[in-house]
């Protein structure tokens, strides 16, 4: 098989994932796009490993590691997203701007409040529910 095929597929998959990371607003969707990028890298590793016919199977072993790391990453990432959601009532990436420079950084965070007014009480409820289910 021509090596260009898997390599090009990996590149295109990576760029689609990149677009998703840069363009999506929902943080969970951003995490999905990150998974796509990781998968593209995995494909690259496997393809080159098979091409080189490596005795130690480095590429495929690393792919295994990568899959495990991706699982860990998605677990931590989702935990963070949930925490952010509980505290801010939103998972929209472009509203989480507390790190912005200059005066009005807090105000910006507050200004995001009214639009999330509907989401906020439910966020608190979600936190409460979480609390009651956690032993």
């Amino acid at each position: 098989m021509h090596l260009v095929h898997p390599a090009t597929l990996a590149v295109l998959l990576f760029c689609v994932g990149l677009y998703g990371v840069l363009a999506r607003r929902n943080t969970v969707l951003v995490l999905m796009s990150v998974e796509l990028m990781l998968a593209a890298v995995s494909l690259n590793l496997v393809a080159f490993d098979v091409w080189l016919a490596d005795e130690l199977h480095s590429g495929q072993v690393f792919t295994l590691f990568l899959i495990a790391l991706a699982a860990a990453e998605i677990g931590i990432g989702l935990a963070i997203v949930l925490l952010v959601y509980r505290r801010r009532g939103t998972v929209a990436l472009d509203r989480l701007r507390a790190l912005r420079d200059g005066p009005g950084a807090d105000e910006a965070a507050e200004a995001a409040g009214p639009t999330d007014a509907a989401a906020r009480p439910t966020a608190i409820d979600a936190a409460r529910g979480q609390e009651t289910t956690t032993p």
Binding site: L22, R97, R100, D101, A108
Partner: peptide
């Protein structure tokens, strides 16, 4: 320069890429 520091992680990442 301050204008660039708008706190949006996506903008930062876009510029980086």
């Amino acid at each position: 320069v301050r204008r660039a520091q708008n706190g949006n992680a996506q903008t930062y990442l876009t510029v980086l890429v």
